[in-house]
Nucleic acid binder design. Sequence first.
DNA 1: CTGTTAGCGCCTTCAT
DNA 2: ATGAAGGCGCTAACAG
Lengths: 349, 349
Amino acid sequence: MQLRVVVMLETDRSLFMSDAPSFRNPTAHDVARLAGVSQSAVSRAFTAGASISPDKREKIIAAADQLGYRPNILARSLIQGTSKVVGVVFGQFENPFFAHALDRFAEEFAARGLRILLFTAKTNATVDEQVAELLSYKVSAVILMAVNLSSKLAAECARSNIPVVMFNRTTEEDHAAFTVTGDNAAGATAIARHFLATGRKRIAYMAGYDDSSTSRQREAAFFAALADSGLPPPRRAIGHYSRHGAIEATRALFASASDQPDALFCANDLMAIAAIETLRAEFGIEPGAQCAVAGFDDIPMASWPSFSLTTYSQPVADMVARAVAFIAGETGEEQAVVVPGKLIVRNSA
Amino acid sequence: MQLRVVVMLETDRSLFMSDAPSFRNPTAHDVARLAGVSQSAVSRAFTAGASISPDKREKIIAAADQLGYRPNILARSLIQGTSKVVGVVFGQFENPFFAHALDRFAEEFAARGLRILLFTAKTNATVDEQVAELLSYKVSAVILMAVNLSSKLAAECARSNIPVVMFNRTTEEDHAAFTVTGDNAAGATAIARHFLATGRKRIAYMAGYDDSSTSRQREAAFFAALADSGLPPPRRAIGHYSRHGAIEATRALFASASDQPDALFCANDLMAIAAIETLRAEFGIEPGAQCAVAGFDDIPMASWPSFSLTTYSQPVADMVARAVAFIAGETGEEQAVVVPGKLIVRNSA
DNA sequence: CTGTTAGCGCCTTCAT
DNA sequence: ATGAAGGCGCTAACAG
């Protein structure tokens, strides 16, 4: 009978444990008690550059190890009013350009002891909520990748002294957001000149989104360069920066068999690659000769032999480095950084 | 003269603001004072399901809006001992399979009010430090994507009652980590049978890492299926799950012109696609006829016409859903979930 | 339903 | 260099 009771107790206990955390993590007090010092000594032992004698520190560290103690970053951040966390709002998982950029950010931040709190926003509409939530985490900076922020929330960030970085987007409004982009104007102009120099006449443009500053800037420069040479405005379609959208856009642009473009500039590489495949598979057109195709970004895939895409490069690592330098306060007064790239001519154009 | 003084004051103020956060964010106390209620009432107004009268709540919300107040999540988490944050340790940005999985996780978590704290670990060696740091953020769960955790840290997580999920990896050790994988054995067997059924004789295998459970399981099943049919063990090379590594591995496997494989199974699609391109570009081999190439994952790119890769699918969305269900405590006792996929036959094999 | 009272775990003056 | 004491902003029992 007694045995049965014991078993039941054990069962109860394990059930309880799986529901609620019955185990309390050790605190600085626990460590202090074990090491025979004050709690503030423990705090100092874990704070770089605090004044504490080496032997005392060692004793504390030993006690901490024994207990499995780690400082609670939440409590620390609460006091200091800021956390070593950067909020990143990310949208485009499909595009390797941004995946790569996120990778670079992670690395640069890690080197500075910063962590990434990741938020996703498929549309600009949801960005505001995400950023609002970020603020309540007391992040030390906000990075917006491929999305825009309303000026209202930008103002809120500014008021809380949280730097905002827009990566690969600019903004016309004068709220204080730091922007880093590639050289959209120079790139689009270079592509246009390349098309003209190789005798292209019936030129088309595939936009990303109409409300993307990046796409608009590339389009404006591209159209301007062509107009300078007396060409009519290119035919135009919207690919939504996605593969699917780009396939549809390509079909639309090449639908009329009697009047197909002989050159196509896509607002990014992802769409350009989709266009290349669509031209091959559905129109029997091999990009390069009959029709030139160019992109923007120079993602790794652009150099793959299957695509050999002519494009204008955006140096991701540099762009990220500039953004991080700004956040770390290592930069001057600039607000809109434009990182130059270069025209990469391959076989597609 | 007075004007000049004002200007100087403004300058001083802005300099000061850029150095330290002179602006104190409004707290629940501030809101309480403005709304003429107690501070706990403010807390209740922002807590779903707390007992507070609708009109009082409205008054509080209005005051909060006026002040730009948002609850400090750090303080809340400090009390509750856990944050609505999930730690994700991520390694493979190059592989769209994981990018897609991360995307799915972000979406599923967002639907449950969970956030992602992102850590990167290029090697298994660094995973432990990352997870240790995660613990001090009081995350409510840890997800390991394509990396392994030492049993020491797994034990620490268990002691803190933090569920650990290994995504696309399993572990032989019996520490309590929940694992989700595709059906590595069934997939590799299906590929082997497909090779055999189409008369392949000189079969090769490209591994990921030797210490990756995923790669080892696929290899074991693949080798076993071939051995069942009396074939000798395949030639073998290691591609490190990267494009670069896969190109090198392909070169090694096909170096001897007199004895090239007539079938190649790669431990993932990313490597298989690299192999296809290398065969075309460097060996003049068009995958499908002369040499079959198969992968594993069924990433979107596998279906692109340029590759048309035969592969075994891993249903990312399902896998992620299972992992999230476990974290949310909606699942039973299972520890090692295997999500079945299916053989996708395209042109490459 | 509401206000009061204690803390959550830690950092940071302030004395010593 | 060290300990004591007072919060950081909020939630969670308590009474009423």
